[in-house]
Simulated scan of single mutants.
Amino acid sequence: MAKIGYARVSTADQDNAVQVAALKASGCEVIREEKATGTTTSGRTELATVLDFIRDGDVLVVTRIDRLARSIADLQTIVRTLREKGAALQATEQPVDTSTAAGKAFLDMLGVFAEFETNLRRERQMEGIAKAKAEGIYKGRKSAIDADEIRRLRADGMGASAIAKSLGIGRASVYRLLDEEGE
């Protein structure tokens, strides 16, 4: 039986050293780390590696359930994968141990609260954006498309597909700009 640790932080400027130390202290022989959002499992290569290689009798250890998933659907998928492989899940800071009935129940409750927290944060963000837009403060991100360069290339006789290819942008973006200008 191996204890495999998984540490995750959301952004590049965050540090997962505290998680790694807690996982080492809990007896993890292998610790996989990554910096990626917890709102989805896609793009989380270290998690995928752990789930691919975990074996019967192994235990996946995290510090808290929200380090593993922030949606109940993703959490249930991960737990189902572990169960199918004969592995268990434990959290160092929460009474989660999927090898017990109480641990499974607590896991589901924590998953619901993690998803709830994510949804609340998203609502607050959208409220802030709406307020900023109403006040004329929020303009969205700057356009990655150089409209002047598109106009210049078009004036030189280049077609929309060629313009898109030369600038590394989508053809639809070129057409959209040209349509707005009546070309």
Rank of each mutant, 00 (worst) to 15 (best):
L110Q: 14
A91Y: 00
E93A: 15
T118D: 10
E93Y: 05
E93T: 12
A102C: 06
Q90F: 01
A102K: 07
L120W: 07
L82W: 02
I129V: 15
L89C: 04
A114M: 03
A114Q: 02
L89M: 07
A91E: 00
V112Q: 13
K104L: 10
T92N: 05
L82V: 04
A114S: 12
E84Y: 01
L82E: 01
G111L: 07
E93D: 15
A102P: 00
N119D: 13
F116T: 09
Q90P: 00
L120D: 09
L107P: 02
R124Q: 14
Q125G: 11
R124W: 04
L110S: 01
G111I: 05
F106C: 06
K85R: 14
R124V: 07
G103F: 06
L107S: 15
A88T: 15
G103N: 09
A105Q: 10
R124N: 08
A105F: 15
F113K: 09
D97V: 02
E127G: 09
F116D: 05
D97E: 06
D108H: 06
E115N: 08
E123P: 00
G111C: 09
K104G: 02
T118V: 13
G86N: 01
L110A: 10
R122S: 12
G86P: 01
F113L: 15
Q125F: 11
E127T: 11
T98W: 00
L82A: 04
S99K: 11
A114T: 02
R121Y: 08
T100M: 12
A87M: 05
A87D: 02
E123S: 09
D97A: 06
M109C: 08
L82K: 01
L107F: 15
A91M: 00
E84L: 09
E93H: 12
R124G: 03
T98N: 01
P95E: 15
A88E: 04
T98A: 01
K85Q: 14
Q125P: 03
Q90V: 13
F113W: 14
G103Q: 09
G128L: 12
S99L: 09
G86T: 01
F113R: 11
A91P: 00
F116N: 10
K104A: 10
N119I: 09
T98G: 00
K104R: 15
A114R: 00
K104V: 12
G86Q: 00
M126V: 11
N119F: 05
I129Y: 13
N119T: 14
